[in-house]
Nucleic acid binder design. Structure first.
Lengths: 323, 323
DNA sequence: ACAATATGCTGACATTTGTCAAAAACTGTG
DNA sequence: CACAGTTTTTGACAAATGTCAGCATATTGT
């Protein structure tokens, strides 16, 4: 450069502005970095820095359009076969089960904001999958959306509890959050009854019964299921429910293959949404993946809790095969 | 490659799927094209093709976040000075006035979907700027939004008429559209009265008076203004209004520098929204740019029609200077 | 069955983008 | 005003991405 180099004044408007300017030229006007460098009278390397800064500050948002995942063949089949409003299928790739779960969670996270609108009250269940979805939601600012914790908390060795799921979800969506300040399961039914009558808890339970949308995963009934690992149910409980026809778990409650609620010993001691409150919602978003979840997912769908599904292509195939 | 090359079956699910898979790996998993090529067992050049296809099909959406443009210094000044809810300022760059207009229009188009929600009824005015905004809106699918044409049609030599503005807008937003099937201005007041009483027209006028949001530009009162060019007003009309204090044009009506409606000969012959219907809306989105628009924009703001502004940095400076 | 046509893939090369250490410009201090 | 400490910019190099002609495999028509 012939003349003296001019630096952008730190912390000034124009300083921020030039970053936006560069980002706009690059992403909207389609100029390449050389052209931008010429116009802004800086070196190309500087343009690279500006663009990086723009990305770091979150000015640039790249997303895969939901249509790509809801429109293809298998998704339509799934929709038609199970009477869903929409299905969102993620490709597996070569990755491990863990990677696939994260991918599905990110897919759900991308999709979720499109499914919410002003005035919605979203019930959030609990589980590893739901936790990852909450984490993966891009920071947005939805207007007038409330997030509600659907089931009480539990001491989990996994590090994700029900209130963390709902709190993160609300945080990232820019929504209000109503937590449920009670354990998911108590040792004594009478204590549970009294706790439910407590004004604070009562108000929270009241709030969650007015959700119009919900997001949840299908819980498996394998012996290593989280429902046991998190201490909600004991191994004996689980066996008892399996003997009585359990096919899956939904918001801490056991359901059979037709999706019917299986009443049992636990219910009187639990604090959380009752399954019939999840029927007839504007949206029931089921997010789950894996061969072991096929049965539980089909059960949840059969029970009429589900309007939208996010899962992997592989799992979707499994569902169509088994049904 | 050692083995025979395998081609993806044309027109099949997996064919579409592999494109999505590649796009996902690239944009979400952050893999580079080489890594993707290895995993998919194709050449890197093929991955390039997949990604291009994904972009062409609109699977990938890149946008600049509105926060970047509404949060900076000058935007805040504008907001505070004029009591706006938000201002969205686009950098000029080096481009021509034409380029700047397109840039501002694209900015407004990016922002607009964020400002609309379920149940909204958006009134759409007319003009070059509004037309470009409508064109630039990315195809989306808003639920339960209605777009309404605010002013009647006119024979314009420019190729953008009021109904094209509203129709394109509705199309691209995925909204319902209510057009106004009448000319903007008639030769005879009596005919205008009768036309307004026609059931179809009456219903449409009724509909547009129930908008809760609106998008419009400020019209200049220069002799080469579109209001003359499109035949809505004659040069004599324009001069008359200027003598009576006109500072700008809003939805075909003349206003003075304080934003007060200037009644005149034209009004009885016009078919379109009346200015008082635009007061007190949830949103009045003013999109305009250029030195000649500063006066009209200030007039519109003074009149209380405006809650949100999209313009260029330069124009914003002009507004602050002049006010 | 065979040629003609269409489609998708690839390797080699061209262009664009990213990295990094060093230089330049600014800031605050004695 | 010299200085040490930061921040920003830059040039040279490395890596990633885009292009395109030609080839291989399907599909179509006869």
């Amino acid at each position: 450069m012939t003349s003296k180099t001019r630096r952008r004044p730190a912390g000034q408007v124009s300083g921020e502005n030039i970053v936006i300017e560069a980002a706009w030229m690059y992403y909207n006007d389609g100029l390449n970095q050389n052209e931008i460098a010429n116009r802004l009278q800086v070196s190309r390397a500087t343009v690279v820095n500006y663009l990086q800064e723009a990305r770091e500050r979150g000015y640039i948002r790249i997303s895969l359009s939901p249509e790509a995942f809801t429109s293809h063949n298998l998704a339509q089949k799934l929709r038609d076969r199970f009477g869903l409003q929409a299905a969102f299928l993620l490709p597996e790739g070569i990755g491990t089960a863990e990677e696939t779960l994260l991918r599905v969670a990110r897919g759900a996270a991308d999709w979720l904001p499109h499914l919410l609108g002003s005035g919605d009250r979203l019930g959030v269940a609990w589980g590893r999958t739901v936790y990852e979805v909450a984490e993966a939601v891009e920071r947005t600012q939805l207007s007038d959306v409330t997030v509600t914790q659907l089931v009480g908390s539990m001491a989990t060795p996994y590090g994700f509890t029900a209130e963390i799921c709902s709190a993160n979800m609300a945080q990232n969506l820019g929504a209000k959050c109503i937590n449920l300040h009670a354990p998911a399961v108590l040792s004594d039914p009478e204590l549970a009854t009294r706790l439910r009558a407590e004004p604070i808890i009562h108000a929270q339970l009241e709030a969650l019964s007015h959700c119009n949308k919900a997001i949840f995963a299908a819980g498996s009934i394998a012996p290593d299921s989280h429902i046991v690992g998190s201490g909600v149910a004991s191994s004996e409980d689980l066996e008892w429910y399996i003997r009585h026809g359990a096919a899956g778990v939904l918001c801490g409650r056991f359901i059979d293959a037709q999706g019917r609620f299986i009443p049992g010993d636990l219910d009187a001691r639990m604090i959380g949404v009752e399954l019939d409150k999840l029927l007839g919602l504007d949206m029931g978003l089921l997010v789950s993946v894996g061969a072991d979840k096929v049965g539980p997912m089909l059960a949840a769908i059969a029970g009429g809790y589900v309007t939208h599904v996010v899962t992997s292509v592989e799992t979707a195939r499994g569902m169509l095969d088994k049904a």
